[in-house]
Measured scan of single mutants.
Amino acid sequence: MGFKLLSKLLVYLTASIMAIASPLAFSVDSSGEYPTVSEIPVGEVRLYQIADGVWSHIATQSFDGAVYPSNGLIVRDGDELLLIDTAWGAKNTAALLAEIEKQIGLPVTRAVSTHFHDDRVGGVDVLRAAGVATYASPSTRRLAEVEGNEIPTHSLEGLSSSGDAVRFGPVELFYPGAAHSTDNLIVYVPSASVLYGGCAIYELSRTSAGNVADADLAEWPTSIERIQQHYPEAQFVIPGHGLPGGLDLLKHTTNVVKAHTNRSVVE
Rank of each mutant, 00 (worst) to 15 (best):
T261I: 02
F236P: 10
L143S: 10
R76Q: 04
A165W: 05
M1F: 05
G240D: 01
G72K: 00
S208Q: 06
A59Q: 03
P176K: 01
A87L: 02
E233W: 07
G158F: 15
A21K: 09
S22C: 11
H230S: 06
F174R: 13
R142C: 15
H154V: 12
A95Y: 10
Y135R: 01
A59C: 05
K258M: 13
I104T: 05
T114H: 00
K4Y: 02
N262T: 05
P35M: 07
L250E: 11
G246K: 09
V132W: 01
M18Y: 14
Y34N: 05
P244N: 04
S181P: 00
G169R: 08
T182N: 04
L249F: 02
K258N: 03
L13K: 09
H154N: 01
I74V: 07
S30P: 05
R141T: 04
D183Y: 02
I84Y: 03
R110H: 14
I224Q: 09
A213W: 08
D248R: 07
A25W: 10
P239T: 13
S30Q: 04
L217M: 06
S193T: 06
T261H: 14
Y135P: 00
T86N: 03
D64H: 13
V265L: 05
E80I: 15
L82Y: 05
L217T: 03
Y68Q: 13
T134S: 10
V75G: 02
L96S: 09
P41S: 13
G122D: 13
S161A: 09
L250F: 05
V237R: 01
S208R: 10
L83H: 01
L195I: 13
A209K: 06
D79V: 08
P176R: 00
D183L: 00
G122K: 13
F26M: 03
R76L: 12
L82R: 08
G210T: 04
E80W: 06
L9W: 07
V126W: 05
G148I: 06
G198Q: 01
F116C: 05
A218D: 10
I84T: 14
A259K: 13
S31C: 11
V121K: 15
G122V: 07
G2E: 13
R263C: 05
A87M: 02
I58H: 07
C199V: 00
I186P: 00
A133D: 13
V132N: 01
G177T: 00
T60M: 07
